[in-house]
Structure formats: C-alpha cells, structure tokens
C-alpha cells in the first residue's frame, strides 16, 4: 500500500558531474517497490509547492536508492542532504516495468544519462531472475555518465565525444547491435524526450517491444489533479489522455504520442 513516510538519508554521494546517488531508509515503502515505480519527495518550504517525483533506482527491505541530476532549486536542496537528515516521501507510485521472462528471450535496458535510474532497479530484478540484460547508458561525456561499471549486465557505454565507451548516440549503437538480440526482445527505456521520440519514429527490428518511462510535470503523483497527461494513440488508451503518474510512468511506446 502506498503511504506517506519519513525517510532518513543514509548516504548521498556525487557519482558524476551534477549527478548524485542517495540511499534513504524508509522501511514502510522500500519493501513494496518494484522497478518503474517512483516516489514523491516533499520539501518543507512553501514557495515551490509541488513535490518532486523520482524513480526508484534500487530497493531493499528497508532502503530506497535514488539517482538524480541537479537541474533546479529542489534538486540543489537534495544535493545538500546529509546522513541522518529526515525527509517526507510518498510511495511507491505508478506502474511497473513488467518483466515477462516467459515471453521474451532477451532484455535490453536503454538509458539516457540520469534516465538510467529506473533501469538500475530493473537490472537488479532481472539479475534476481537469472537474466543478464544488455545495459546501454549514454551521455555527452565521460564525466556525465552515472554508471561506469557493472558486472551483472552486458554494460555498453556511449558518449557523444567518445571520451569513454563507444562514440556517438546510444540509440544508434543499440540499433547497430540488433542482430545479436534473441527474439522476442523486451526493451526498457528511460531518457530525454528526444530519445523517446527518435525511438518512436524509426522502424524497429521485428519482434521487439519497447517500453518507455515518461516524465511530465506532476502536482500530486496520485491521479488527483489530472495534470500529468500524455496523448495516446488508438491503442490501449483509445486515444484518450493517459495519466503519467497513475497509468504510467511506463508505457508501451506504441500507445503514446510525442508531439508536445
């Protein structure tokens, strides 16, 4: 059951340029979390009123991991969190990356920058099921890569400037290797809107299903405000607006439109 809880910051470390990895102790929530879900973080000051949503980047019985990028006021506050500090959170929220190991024969994780966050948790769950996924992570430069080594997956790093890993765009490299993947293939993606749009517009290899985790500005995270809508195609949501916080954040790429 989702609930509001007080979480205690256990660690909060810089792992790349402007990117932090935090560990929160929140036993009421941690044990129930599944990959794809997110939490809301509440801040005590009331000038900026919206809670901020963050994907769960890993969870044990008592702890939740977050991987976040400092881009504005509240993420700047977060970067100053120190061990022992208490914060208010709500979770787990949203739907999940549904691992269908009976159906798919290969699993690919495709992360753009800090978009690796929910995929790290998904990787953990895949590994628990004895699956070794391909894990692509792309960034502009080496300094911005949130993850640099991972023995549990086939890790493929890409950078725009070639400072580490393969040079070029992460989507290009993922497609270039397509013939290696066993089919049917399940691809789970999180990254900037541009990256999702590219994936939507290209014709994908046969027998590949792509699931994307979307981000929209959210006020409640619970389906109360109807603010976080995404336009859909005629598929599962019948062309109606879907709520990213409640119907998502994970969608089959076939079901969503990327035109705003």
């Amino acid at each position: 059951m989702k609930c509001v809880a007080t979480a205690i910051i256990r660690s909060n470390q810089k792992v790349a340029d402007g990117i932090f990895l935090a560990s929160l102790e929140a036993p009421e929530i941690a044990g129930q979390c599944l990959p794809g879900q997110f939490i809301n973080i509440y801040f005590p000051e009331t000038t900026k009123i919206f809670p901020r949503p963050f994907s769960i980047a890993g969870a044990s019985d008592s702890r939740i991991k977050l991987l976040y990028k400092v881009i504005g006021s509240q993420t700047t506050l977060m970067s100053g969190w120190s061990a022992g500090q208490k914060i208010k959170i709500l979770g787990p929220l949203g739907n999940i990356f549904d691992i269908q190991e009976q159906h798919y024969r290969d699993f690919i994780l495709l992360g753009g920058g800090v978009g690796a966050a929910p995929l790290m948790f998904l990787r953990d769950e895949l590994v628990k099921k004895g699956i070794k996924p391909y894990f692509f992570i792309g960034a502009k430069t080496k300094a911005e890569l949130p993850v640099v080594e991972d023995s549990a997956s086939h890790l493929i790093l890409t950078t725009d400037d070639g400072s580490v890993g393969l040079k070029g765009n992460v989507v290009e490299h993922f497609l270039r290797m397509a013939e290696n993947y066993k089919t049917p293939t399940q691809v789970s993606v999180c990254g900037p809107d541009m990256m999702m749009k590219v994936l939507k517009d290209i014709s994908l290899p046969q027998n590949m299903d792509v699931f994307v985790s979307l981000e929209k500005t959210m006020a409640c995270g619970l389906g109360l405000c109807q603010g976080c809508v995404v336009e859909t195609t005629s598929g599962k949501y019948n062309g109606h607006y879907a709520l990213v916080c409640k119907d998502g954040p994970v969608f089959n790429i076939k079901d969503v439109k990327f035109n705003d």
Partner: peptide, 19 residues
C-alpha cells in the same frame, strides 16, 4: 477528455491549472 497538455505549472506559492 479535458484540455491538451501542458495542463499545470508551479508558480510562487501556488499553481496554475487548465484541466
């Protein structure tokens, strides 16, 4: 079905909605 996105924005001590 309501209005197209974006439907909400945070403002100083408040928000604007167009649901």
């Amino acid at each position: 079905i309501g209005n197209p996105p974006p439907r909400i924005v945070e403002t100083a001590a408040g928000m604007i909605n167009s649901i």
